[in-house]
């Protein structure tokens, strides 16, 4: 078989194999950016605690509320905690708060509120969570009478 015939047969083979090459591909790129989500919110609105009763011979009874307000949060980042702080110095009474019935974290226990941020819920999981906000206001007879509004802020932040 001479070289010319071989070449022609090679061309023929290419022609036959052309059908095998008759397929091509193309694509659409899909990009999903999942951003950091760290949301916390208070439900229940403003809360009023009134210290108005006492047993004779004892300090005034504390005022408590554990049903009006709830805290809810969502995070998709690990190693988070929720802190609590008062916007202004608390005077004339003592205000405490507890994270009760916590889901998605661990309660920091009962905290006496101040302007310094304290760990309210720790070990916040990368999920949704929530708790009841249990407040207690107390005052001594010596504190006298007053009426003050405090803004209590809850912040989800890095647990360092």
């Amino acid at each position: 078989m001479n070289k010319k015939l071989l070449s022609l047969l090679s061309l023929a083979a290419l022609g036959v194999s052309g059908s095998a090459l008759a397929a091509s591909s193309a694509s659409h790129d899909v990009t999903v950016t999942v951003s950091a989500i760290n949301e916390v919110s208070v439900a229940g609105g403003n809360l009023t605690l009134t210290i108005s009763t006492a047993t004779a011979g004892s300090e005034p009874d504390a005022a408590t509320d554990s049903t009006t307000c709830d805290l809810a949060w969502t995070t998709n980042e690990a190693s988070k905690k929720i802190t609590v702080a008062s916007g202004t110095t608390i005077s004339g009474a003592t205000l405490k708060v507890t994270a009760a019935n916590v889901t998605g974290g661990t309660s920091g226990g009962q905290l006496t509120l101040s302007t310094t941020a304290q760990d309210f819920v720790t070990g916040v999981a990368t999920t949704t969570g929530g708790c009841d906000l249990s407040y207690e206001a107390s005052a001594t007879a010596a504190d006298g009478t007053s009426s003050t509004t405090y803004t209590i802020t809850y912040t989800i932040t890095a647990a360092v």
Binding site: S19, A23, S24, D29, V34, E77
Partner: peptide, 19 residues
Amino acid sequence: VSTIPVDIYDTSITYTIVD
């Protein structure tokens, strides 16, 4: 949020035409 971490995810939807 429980299962999908913060990240950028990429895939290509690839189409192939067949005779």
